[in-house]
Computed example of a mutant assay.
Amino acid sequence: MSSFWVFPGQGAQQAGMLHALPDDPLVRECLRQASEVLDEDVLELDSPQALQATREVQLCLLIAGVACARVLMARGSAPDYVAGLSIGAYPAAVIAGALSFADALRLVALRGELMQRAYPQGYGMTALTGLDQGVVERLVAQVHGPHSPVYLANINADNQFVIAGSDQAMADVATLAKGEGAAMAKRLAVSVPSHCELLNEPAQALAQAFAQVTLQAPTLKYLSGSTARPLFTADKLREDLAYNMCRLIDWRSTVQTAYERGARLQIELPPGAVLTGLARRVFGNGLEQGSAVAFQGARLDTLSALSREEGCRHP
Rank of each mutant, 00 (worst) to 15 (best):
M1D: 14
P8S: 09
G16W: 08
L18N: 00
L26K: 05
E40C: 15
D41E: 13
V42N: 01
S47A: 06
T54V: 10
E56S: 13
V57F: 03
G65T: 00
A67G: 04
C68A: 13
L72I: 02
L72K: 02
Y81C: 10
A83V: 08
A89P: 11
P91S: 09
P91V: 03
P91E: 07
V94I: 08
L99I: 09
L99K: 02
S100N: 07
R106M: 10
L107C: 06
V108C: 02
E113K: 10
M115G: 06
A118Q: 13
Y119M: 10
P120E: 12
Y123V: 05
T126S: 04
T126V: 07
G134Q: 12
A141D: 11
V143W: 04
P146I: 06
V150T: 01
Y151E: 05
E180C: 07
M184S: 14
P193F: 00
P193N: 05
P193L: 01
H195A: 01
C196P: 03
L199K: 07
E201M: 11
E201H: 06
Q204A: 13
L206F: 02
A207T: 02
F210I: 03
A217L: 02
L220T: 01
I249E: 04
I249S: 09
T257K: 10
A263G: 07
R264D: 05
P271S: 05
A273N: 14
A279D: 01
V282F: 14
Q289E: 09
G297W: 00
R299Q: 15
T302E: 15
L303R: 11
R308V: 09
C312E: 13
